[in-house]
Amino acid sequence: MLFLQSLISGLLTGGVYALAGIGMSLVFGVMNVSNFAHGDLMMLGMYMAYFVFTLLHIDPYISLVLVMPAAFVFGYGLEKMFINRVIHHPHQNQILLTIGLGLIMSNTALLAFTSDPRILTTSYSSSSFNILRDVSVSVPLLLSFMITCVITATLYLFLGKSRTGMALRATSQNREAAQLMGINVSRMSAIAFGIGTALAATAGALIAPTYYIHPLAGHSFLLKSFTICVLGGLGSVVGATVGGLIIGVIEAMSSTYISTDWKDVVVFVLFLAVLLFRPQGLFGKKGGQ
């Protein structure tokens, strides 16, 4: 029963991790940029959900209809103003820039919101129900998982069938050829970064009811997103989905069977193992950097 319990909570949390991982992977695929501000964008999503809840009294899950478009516009603007200047530069320049942007975000949040953690308590924050005698499912985790599924399915459909989605995939598979098709690849980069930001902020908003909201909360999620991307194969959206679920389950299992303090250690040991034995990730192609 303990095993089933860990598996279920792991999968439910993993869904949200997957969302954050997909955002990072999409940006990497289309732009070949590792976004080290990804965790801080997630933190901004947490605060957005928090303030929409406390000031406008809108449920954090419903607030997504505001958070997602706002984050998309923010990410689109960020790409147009900063990221596109380094898109053809070496990776270390891109990493420095995105780390810098992340520091500005987290420190602005520290100034504006102080370092006191905030808690977003909804009527259902700690409610759960039993599906078996010893196995319970947390209501907020289940809700956020279902929302994640809807968003992921919509994204798959968008990338698979829509004209813009296909152009994003084409840009990620061969940027030069995409240009020769008449695709405006710099616009595709901005759209990809906008979607990546929207997904990070959504993941942030989704965990807001079950997590401490803090200006530095993004950092652990940055490492998690990065691990998910590497595990799934950098640039692979399917890989990030699977990677997120795997990381969620591994975390839950190691909390149960080893210790909560060790769950991050287990995740990063796995990260190193992937880098050593399968550096292209589960769904990645060989030769990526």
């Binding site: 152009a167 598979q173 030069e176 050829a177 995409a178 020769l180």
Partner: peptide, 25 residues
């Protein structure tokens, strides 16, 4: 329209999808 050296087709897209991308505009 420029057909590049080394073909540069989109490897993870089907023939249909590749042709669809050609018709992007």
């Amino acid at each position: 329209v420029h057909v590049p050296e080394g073909r540069k087709i989109f490897p993870e897209m089907s023939v249909d999808e590749n042709l669809m991308m050609g018709a992007f505009l």
